[in-house]
């Protein structure tokens, strides 16, 4: 399964962000930053994805959507929270509709701070996620409990 490490697929979901981080995630895919050269592909289908890139502070309505996508992803999987909103709620923390960070809904493996997070740090976060993905895969193969 070492191909996973070489070509991870990501799924991106906007859980009530301001778009700032979303367009930076998209910018990672375009010619200047071009993560596709690492074999990283953006997919729309959770069942194809290894890494879940999520932006925004998660509001009441899309809580379920987020959980849903997470549950549909096959093991091993890694969650990357992009932007301070996704990390903690950020400037919107006190808003009535914001639950305050992705970690309130699903477990997060990598936090990418910044408002908006820079493409460089997003790529850095995804590269870290690759390492974690690899660890999780080993744990899963070794049959460690709670990994499947």
């Amino acid at each position: 399964m070492s191909y996973l490490q070489k070509s991870p697929w990501i799924i991106h979901y906007d859980a009530s962000s301001c778009n700032g981080c979303d367009i930076e995630v998209l910018a990672c895919l375009t010619p200047l930053y071009d993560v596709e050269r690492f074999g990283i592909l953006n997919t729309g289908n959770p069942k194809h994805a290894d890494i879940f890139v999520i932006t925004g502070g998660v509001n009441e309505i899309n809580k379920e959507v987020v959980q849903n996508i997470y549950e549909q992803m096959p093991h091993p999987k890694v969650v990357v929270a992009v932007g301070i909103c996704a990390c903690s709620g950020g400037v919107f923390r006190e808003c009535y509709n914001i639950s305050g960070g992705v970690a309130t809904v699903i477990p997060v493996d990598v936090y990418v701070p910044g408002c908006a997070a820079r493409p460089e740090s997003i790529i850095d976060g995804i590269v870290q996620a690759l390492g974690i993905l690899e660890q999780k895969r080993h744990a899963m193969n070794a049959g460690v409990e709670g990994t499947v």
Binding site: A15, S16, N59, I61, N62, V91, F92, N97
Partner: peptide, 14 residues
């Protein structure tokens, strides 16, 4: 709509 409603107009009071 309503998938990304944050309610930030309310923050002006804080």
């Amino acid at each position: 709509i309503g998938y990304v409603h944050r309610g930030l107009e309310k923050l002006v009071e804080k």
